[in-house]
C-alpha cells in the first residue's frame, strides 16, 4: 500500500493488517497522528488492503 507521511513529506510502501499495526511498524505514536485511508479519517482498528492509499497527518503544530 502507498503511504504518504505528511510530517517528513515522504512517500513509502509498507504492508500491515490494520492501522494500529502500520503505525507500530513505522514507529509512529497514535496519539500524535491522524490517519486517512482512501480519503477518510479512520480509527486504529481499520483493516487495510494492498490497494489502499494512506495519508498520515501529524497533529503536532506550532512551537
Amino acid at each position: 500500500m502507498k503511504i504518504y507521511i505528511e510530517r517528513t513529506n515522504k512517500n513509502i510502501n509498507a504492508k500491515a493488517g490494520n492501522v494500529r499495526e502500520l503505525l507500530k511498524k513505522l514507529k509512529l505514536n497514535p496519539t500524535a497522528v491522524l490517519v486517512r485511508v482512501n480519503g477518510e479519517i479512520v480509527t486504529e482498528d481499520k483493516k487495510l488492503n494492498s490497494k489502499d492509499k494512506i495519508i498520515i497527518h501529524s497533529v503536532v503544530s506550532g512551537g
Binding site: E6, R7, H57, S58, V59, V60, S61, G62, G63
Partner: peptide, 13 residues
Amino acid sequence: KFNECPYSLSTFR
C-alpha cells in the same frame, strides 16, 4: 497547514 515551527523541533517543550 499542519507544519511545525522549524525552531521548535529540538526544544525542551
